[in-house]
Design a binder for these strands. Structure first.
Lengths: 233, 233
DNA sequence: GTCTATAACTGGATAGAC
DNA sequence: GTCTATCCAGTTATAGAC
């Protein structure tokens, strides 16, 4: 079982070797990411990954053992980065806002890191987000995968939002987050559907436009459902 | 090319035969629907469909020619039904509401038919909805498939909403629909994630709870983004 | 319409040379 | 670490008997 890069340098070997290996590994991950994002786990073959990355297919097994192993590695790689960014974004906001904390602020702090990568036009991140969308909507293992990697960050968001709406019940907060999650992941998948539907008025890739509308949209939704305000329907 | 049930009765044959054939065809569709919903197009084999339906795999090709043909047939079958239901639901609402038309009413009229099937616990419809969620979030052909089958109905919804918010711009309306679409399809996919995230407070399958919250949530979002109201932020 | 048999091929995975 | 060669299970799809 050749476990991937467990012990760093294989004792006395020139560093060049290791650097190249890390490079190869990353190359495979990048190309697998792009392919999985578009066709899903079962829609991609190990051979395709290899030839896309310009690397022998056997190397894929060398580094990741199985196709599922590769898929998981792809999924995990950016999850950690993203979570760290979101946590620090929310922490920074909470600290800066203090008592003037608002739902809009929390949601923007939560969304901004993920959408910033898209706005900056990083294709690798965009592929990863498409993959996220696919996994989030996969009935069998998708839910578990999301739970395993992202739940702690979501709880942090819910905690912040609770401070904005102290009278909100947990059920309401979680359902509202659920709507947020659906709206976000569909946006991330950039299927191009909204472009055609709107006859060009909307552009799937325009994350700036999405962020600008999603923050008030979601915040208003949260407030309406979680605040037992005067509106009676 | 044995086109499926093109001409109804093959001239002079006993009706039994035809009835059984229709039954077999439907059986295949039902089981394919359940499998595609959970594993996607590439995650299912023709053999699996056959053995799940208790039918010879060759029959799948007899009725649908290719696996993709089967997939398309599954997707189309309920799309027509659903569209008709949604149109008549919205028409009925618009007629009844008259000048007292509201965003809440439009959205509920749009959502109710789709969620009613789930609320009634029809497993076949629920599988179909899971499939919808998967397709809606598929970057490559998903967007086109949604466009082809559902855009006219969506335009009808947008038209109604425009009557509630005459000053709304098209861009805003379409983006807001996009958020609605994401929230809806994630709900339909019932991944079970929200159940774990909320430690049991929310239940994925509880469409009643979803509908009750989604209507005000989405309506508030629309109003906030599409109405140039006094709120500044 | 249904089933058997099989063609023709592609998939993931591994052993072993370099 | 990388590549060649290969295994073999499983794939779609079809021809043809019933």
């Amino acid at each position: 079982m050749p476990r991937a890069a467990n012990k760093a340098a294989p004792r006395g070997r020139p560093v060049r070797r290791l650097a190249e290996a890390v490079e190869t590994r990353g190359l495979i991950l990048d190309h697998a990411e792009a392919l999985f994002a578009r066709h899903g786990l079962h829609g991609v073959t190990v051979r395709e990954v290899g030839s896309s990355a310009g690397v022998d297919p056997a190397l894929v097994h060398y580094y990741f053992e199985t196709k599922k192993g590769l898929f998981d590695a792809v999924f995990e790689r950016r999850a950690e980065v993203l979570n760290a960014e979101r946590i620090s974004s929310m922490d920074a906001y909470a600290l800066a806002a203090g008592e003037r904390i608002s739902a809009e602020g929390c949601i923007e702090a939560f969304l901004e890191p993920i959408l910033r990568h898209s706005i900056q036009g990083d294709e690798r991140w965009k592929n990863y987000f498409r993959l996220l969308a696919l996994v989030n909507n996969s009935p069998d293992w998708g839910g578990r995968m999301m739970t395993r990697h992202f739940d702690p960050v979501i709880r942090r968001l819910i905690d912040l939002l609770r401070r904005c709406m102290p009278q909100a019940s947990d059920v309401d907060l979680y359902w509202c987050y659920h709507f947020l999650s659906g709206a976000l992941t569909l946006s991330l998948s950039e299927t191009g559907r909204i472009d055609r539907l709107s006859a060009g008025a909307c552009v799937s890739a325009d994350m700036e436009a999405i962020l600008r509308r999603m923050v008030p949209f979601i915040a208003a939704g949260f407030r309406r459902v979680c605040q037992p305000g005067p509106q009676a329907t």
